[in-house]
């Protein structure tokens, strides 16, 4: 009981700190830095190395704090992060069963793409926004997000593999022909 409560409090604290960090610090950086999304990266890590349910708990907390701080439609961040997490988990369980760095990178890129795509659709349909999918700056921003996500994946994959000791292959295993 005490351990569960401690984990819950720690979880909430990490969520709110990450949300504030995303909201205030990241937004003040130059353009190339503003596309770093630590919250998204953490969510993908949790889905890949642990499971969907802890990721959804994290999204609920992180998204809630982000929705409070921002002036967007309340729930938009929680909703889009949840939807992206569910899609990515489905792909991971059914198609990317070989848990290598390549599948991790694929999961990262798919999550980032779906998250941004959903935000663009919601903005266009419900928030009277412009059709940003036709805007070059949207795709440029997406490119930077892929860069940061990919870099984080490459840097942290090995230490996490060592820590979790769940996934053996670093790269795809090569089958011996003889």
């Amino acid at each position: 009981m005490f351990k569960a409560l401690t984990q819950f409090l720690l979880f909430s604290l990490v969520s709110i700190l990450l949300a504030v960090f995303q909201f205030s610090f990241i937004s003040a950086l130059p353009a190339w830095g503003q596309n770093l999304y630590p919250g998204v990266i953490v969510i993908v890590f949790i889905i890949f190395f642990i499971d969907l349910l802890p990721a959804l708990y994290f999204i609920l907390a992180f998204g809630f704090f982000l929705d409070i701080l921002s002036f967007q439609f309340f729930g938009v961040y929680t909703l889009t992060l949840t939807a992206a997490a569910l899609v990515v988990y489905f792909i991971l369980k059914n198609f990317l069963t070989n848990r290598s760095l390549y599948s991790f990178l694929a999961v990262m890129f798919i999550f980032i793409f779906i998250y941004n795509f959903l935000l663009a659709i919601i903005s266009f349909i419900f928030l009277s926004g412009s059709f940003i999918l036709g805007d070059i700056s949207f795709w440029s921003s997406l490119g930077w997000q892929f860069f940061w996500g990919g870099l984080s994946a490459i840097i942290f994959f090995s230490p996490l593999i060592f820590w979790f000791k769940k996934f053996k292959p670093f790269f795809l295993e090569k089958k011996r022909l003889v």
Partner: peptide
Amino acid sequence: FIFKSIRPLSNDLYLWGTSISASYD
């Protein structure tokens, strides 16, 4: 309550971010 609690931290983080942005500019 949440906003009031995180306001000082938010302010400091934003100042830190803008100082990085300013030196880059």
